[in-house]
Design a protein around this nucleic acid. Structure first.
Lengths: 332, 332
DNA sequence: TTGAAAGCGCTAACAC
DNA sequence: GTGTTAGCGCTTTCAA
């Protein structure tokens, strides 16, 4: 057991606990060497609980994501953790499983337990984050927002830009029957990717089908199954997140649809093996670990500053990476 | 701010703080209804810091993994988090990046900050975990062990079984020039997978090449590059983890090697897209989220019991899933 | 079943 | 630059 307390150190160094506390806090102290020695001898480690109770700060940050097994969020967590560690902060992780109630419970519970949270909210219409903030939880939004989060720091991506590039790419190739597999429309990426894509298609007035998934693999699978059961199935599909793309590819595989000969497909977010598929998958990509790292930097910075500093909002670029899963439609 | 303290609640309910504390702890109390109402009215939330300071417990558990972006560890974290949440525990996450020093620092730092930790140690020869345990940190080992961890709870997998199946599969197909791409030999999975594989090959005395990676993608890539530069390259390769398998596949792709016509390949741990590759990848699989969930259950159980309960060790099965990336060698 | 009182280990006023 | 003192919010003796 780490038994030694600050009192033990003080006694051994022949000073008061205050002096030890000051030394620990980085202040100038005459007995620095003695204290250092006492700390080492006793293997003294300050009690985090006592510190928190007294100071009101915990030196830990929560990261609240819908699903850590989504490679995007795993990368975000990794990036955030690295930055936190460098600043001697600890990381709490919460999985909401894309469940609003769970998210609300988690946030309420986090108040007072961490100094702040990075949040990728499940839906845009929930006000649990606002309540948590009012209860004293500094918040940075990551990748997704909620109504009324404009005054918060946020690290977002240009969903519109990437989606528009996909639309233009499809049109350039000559596709006129185009489909989009949407994620949750209540989430920022779901909404933005859809809107920008549909908007960019308008210039050519193609036939557009929409299917709604839930950002999960199953959703992508079923959506594609439905699309290809249409009398005139699309010749090009934009799948708006990575997990649904996996499901979509599985569906195409099961149906024996040849890509890109019979169908062009583009995913949002790169996948580890995307380049190794036959054909290699065309995707919209964006920096992932960096997004997490930036969010953590924003949060730590805000903790240092007064709360009334203006909201900092970072929007990262997205980029269409054309590989082999898109081609001209066969009939053209 | 969550301002209300237990004193406020007590006053409002007309009882002592002791009684409120007991009520909160689940004991029978006469004024239960009044207290419940006061808690609701004041939106009272107990201070975690005060609780920890007084009780010595934090109701949080750390999970220490080499890399969250490895799908296996992401799944482990998810499984562990779900179980922890159900028991009202919080989860700290630490990434060691396969770095022993970082791991040692993390563990030392965790003492007193969490009630226990689930650890997937980087190497087998480090004693930092032992020191942390002696300092009072209950530990459960996950997937990997260290020298002297036999008295600890652990959730492992039958690395030998899966690897042996791969070896037999290769031999059955008629391969006689066989290679293994090892992970870190200082880790449990690295060592066990290698030993069982080589051992099972002995019956047929094939020509065996070994390459050493580090469980990362780059390592797999380079190992395969070296193997295929040999005068008589192998006709079958066993790659001993998922990340290295991705690298290996990338190398084969870059070299234009046709699988399984020119080369058979098997990976350890399934990948999201493994079934969609051309050909679908043959792999050794095992339950992943479950491994994390079990480790968390073991740990929570140990926290409830006295420390001298005998170590519980769970070994999960591994299974070879034959898909399309293995075939008879061409020359046969 | 209840309450009074002590104290977990630390930091922040405040006085020197 | 240093020490004294008080107290953060809770749980846990102890006695009733």
């Amino acid at each position: 057991m780490s038994e030694a307390t600050i009192g033990d150190v003080a006694r051994r160094a022949g000073v008061s606990t205050t002096t030890v506390s000051r030394f620990l806090g980085g202040q100038q102290v005459r007995a620095a060497d003695l204290i250092r020695a006492a700390v080492a001898d006793l293997d003294y480690r300050p009690s985090p609980a006592a510190r928190s109770l007294r100071s009101g700060r915990t030196r830990s940050i929560a990261v609240v994501v819908p699903d850590v097994t989504n490679p995007f969020f795993a990368a975000v967590v990794k990036g955030a953790e690295a930055v936190a560690r460098r600043d001697d902060y600890h990381l709490f992780l919460s999985n909401t499983d894309e469940d609003v109630d769970r998210e609300a419970a988690v946030l309420a519970d986090l108040v007072g337990r961490v100094d702040g949270a990075i949040l990728a909210p499940t839906v845009e219409s929930d006000d649990a984050p606002l309540r948590a903030h009012q209860a004293g939880l500094p918040l940075v939004f990551l990748d997704r927002e909620i109504e009324g989060s404009a005054m918060f720091d946020a690290v977002l991506v240009d969903n519109g830009g990437g989606s528009r590039q996909v639309a233009e790419h499809f049109l350039d190739l000559g596709h006129r029957r185009i489909a989009i597999v949407n994620g949750t429309m209540h989430s920022t990426p779901g909404r933005q990717r859809r809107e920008a894509f549909l908007d960019a298609l308008k210039v050519a007035e193609p036939q557009v089908h929409e299917e709604h998934g839930d950002f999960r693999e199953q959703g992508g699978y079923q959506a594609v199954m439905r699309l290809l059961a249409l009398e005139h199935p699309p010749t090009a599909i934009f799948v708006t997140n990575n997990l649904m793309t996996v499901g979509a590819l599985r569906a195409l595989h099961d149906l024996g649809v040849r890509v890109p000969d019979e169908l062009s497909i583009v995913g949002f977010d790169d996948l580890d093996l995307a380049q190794l598929l036959m054909p290699p998958l065309t995707v919209v990509e964006r920096p992932m670990e960096e997004q997490g790292a930036l969010a953590m930097r924003l949060l730590l910075r805000r903790l240092r500053e007064s709360d009334d500093v203006q909201a900092r909002r970072i929007v990262l670029e997205t980029k269409l990476v054309v590989r082999g899963s898109t081609a001209r439609p066969r009939s053209t």
